[in-house]
């Protein structure tokens, strides 16, 4: 396996994300604690978290958002465009994602041409 800079912190973030998701339905407080921790680890190591993971955690309390478990998802109309809205059950904050039919909302990191090399 090739050595990557900051690999152990990425592994740690991955692990914390996993356990945060695992415990979310039983104890949302602990889930928020782990979510908070992996963001702090990423901050300390100046590493970037993949947007896919980032979208799954609450902005305010940093708990994992899972539909019907820790959050409620609904589709709303705002200025003629539809929005997917997550309502966090622990702290009550909202998170909005635009969802227009004929628009590509992927960020650069999610596009296939951004991947240069896959290291296993």
């Amino acid at each position: 396996m090739k050595k990557i800079q900051g690999n152990d912190s990425f592994q740690r973030i991955n692990y914390l994300y996993q356990i945060s998701k695992e415990i979310a339905d039983k104890n949302p407080v602990l889930s928020a604690y782990y979510g908070n921790l992996f963001i702090n680890v990423a901050k300390k190591n100046v590493a970037k978290i993949h947007p896919d993971i980032k979208r799954q955690i609450c902005k305010k309390c940093r708990c994992i958002l899972i539909h019907k478990v820790t959050a409620n998802m609904s589709i709303k109309k705002k200025n003629k465009s539809k929005m997917v809205e997550y309502l966090c059950n622990t702290c009550g904050s909202k998170k909005n994602f635009p969802a227009k039919k004929d628009k590509d909302y992927r960020t650069w990191l999610e596009k296939p041409e951004s991947v240069v090399e896959v290291v296993s």
Partner: peptide, 17 residues
């Protein structure tokens, strides 16, 4: 949208397990 402050977290019971 700000992060929760310490006092707000305490109110939600984040520190008392």
């Amino acid at each position: 949208v700000r992060c929760l402050t310490r006092a707000e977290k305490k109110e939600l019971g984040f520190y008392a397990i």
